[in-house]
Amino acid sequence: MKDGVYYFSRRVPSDLRSHYATDRISFSLRTKSARDAEARGLAHAIKLDEFWFKLRMNGGQVPGHHRLLNEEERSRRPSPTMVEAKELYLRLKGVGRPKTFYMGAERAVEYLITASGNKALLAYTKSDATAFRDALYARKLGTSSVERVMTTIKAIVAFALSEEGITAPNPFVGVYLNRQERAEDRKPISLPDIRSVQAKCRELDDDVRWLVALISDTGMRLAEAAGLLVSDFSLDDPVPHVVVQPHPWRSLKTTASERCVPLVGEALWAASRIVKRSGPEFAFPRYNRADRTNANSASASLNKWLGKYVPAGCVVHSFRHSLRDRLRAVECPSDVVDQIGGWTTAGNGQGYGQGYPLSVKHRWMAAASEYISAEHGATK
């Protein structure tokens, strides 16, 4: 006891002295109550006895430690390769899953093979996992994207090892991710730049520019727009609109993404050009095959062209940010904005009913179009 405070004190057994820098363990029990000190001292004594028992067993190692495989032995032991693990994972876990599930797994494994090769699962080490993480960041992926890819790889490895009855550590578990690091925010495109791009679209007047113009005044996601059919456009309706719906070649991000978007301004011009063109079933044939919309190809080509006319940091997706700002500027209610853009609105009540009629959404879209024209001059 010191100054009325009780202390715990216990001599280290001689056979365990080599594990300690002192021959006695002593520390404050942080109480002046004899009753509390007795209870706390007993609890610490029990913990010490358990710990010392473990230290005495095989020099502190768990029983059977000598039978664990070392790294070299693990690399020689038969186990599926990463590609084989991915195929097993998709075959069993992919039943009934959307194409995005398959695409995510394929992309994650492709990234890993590029960084570390197609090894047997037991040959991957923690250094492979951390090098993989660094390679993902080197691709300029944001932390959320890196985390998504790492989670997919962890799931594939864990599932394959479990299915093969292999008990071994998963090296992709516990890899540190810097959650302070953020992907560069996508900037909205200013109104003057939107009008400049739209004018250039009219001047060039081809299918690539129709796609840009369509997105610029609807705020659709690039994949949504690129995967449209000509039949998705309804220009003879009292409210011209486009139906955004899932197709076998292109799914939608969320259930809220399925919607009808009124066509105004340059989007209506682009839609009329698409519908008048005879022949193809797809609105944008160059970015579609029977089984897949190549949104990555569309993104690369559109952003390369768009970069000549907008500030650094602005991409095709920036039109989506800009539309939301334009609708805010005309004081459009937020739940109407969500239904126009296919954003999910919080709250249980939002799931009731069929949502706003086209005429209401058209009124706000027209106001946003008039706003940009009034502020910066209409395209002739």
Rank of each mutant, 00 (worst) to 15 (best):
H44A: 14
D128N: 06
T218P: 05
V310N: 00
G349N: 10
A120F: 00
E181W: 11
V173T: 15
V310R: 01
G377C: 12
Q245E: 05
S26C: 15
N294R: 10
G342F: 08
H19P: 03
M103N: 13
D23N: 15
A223P: 00
T31C: 07
T81D: 00
A283E: 04
Y102G: 09
Q350N: 14
S322R: 05
R221L: 05
Y287N: 03
R277S: 07
N296D: 14
Y352H: 14
D206E: 08
S369T: 15
R286Q: 15
S190P: 01
V360L: 13
A155S: 12
V243S: 06
Y124K: 00
I274T: 01
Q339M: 09
A270P: 00
N288M: 00
L211W: 13
T100P: 00
F101A: 09
Q354I: 14
G347R: 06
L112C: 11
G227S: 04
A21R: 15
A225H: 09
P98E: 12
G279W: 05
S216Q: 00
L327H: 08
N288F: 02
Y176I: 09
D193A: 12
R40C: 04
G351Y: 08
V264M: 03
V149T: 15
D338M: 06
E110R: 14
A368I: 10
L204Q: 07
T22N: 11
E163F: 07
G342H: 12
I215A: 11
V62L: 14
D128V: 00
A295C: 06
G104Q: 12
A85I: 01
D291N: 14
I113R: 03
I166Q: 02
P357R: 04
Y102E: 15
R324H: 11
A37T: 07
S257L: 07
S216T: 02
D23V: 10
N294M: 05
A168Y: 00
A298N: 03
S301T: 15
D232H: 05
C332A: 13
A267E: 03
G355W: 08
A34M: 07
T31I: 10
E110D: 14
R286V: 12
V315M: 04
D3K: 14
T379C: 09
P192M: 01
R30P: 03
V208F: 13
V175F: 13
R76M: 03
T344D: 06
D335E: 10
N178Q: 09
S190K: 05
K140I: 08
D193L: 09
T31H: 03
A283K: 04
P262C: 06
G377Q: 11
H321R: 06
F172L: 04
N58W: 13
S14E: 15
K93M: 09
L55Q: 02
Y111W: 07
C314S: 05
A270N: 00
E87I: 06
D36R: 14
Y309E: 08
S359A: 10
G96V: 13
P188R: 05
K54C: 06
A298L: 08
Y20M: 03
V243R: 12
G4N: 03
R76K: 07
L69S: 10
P63M: 03
K93Q: 13
W343A: 04
C260A: 15
I46N: 07
S116V: 06
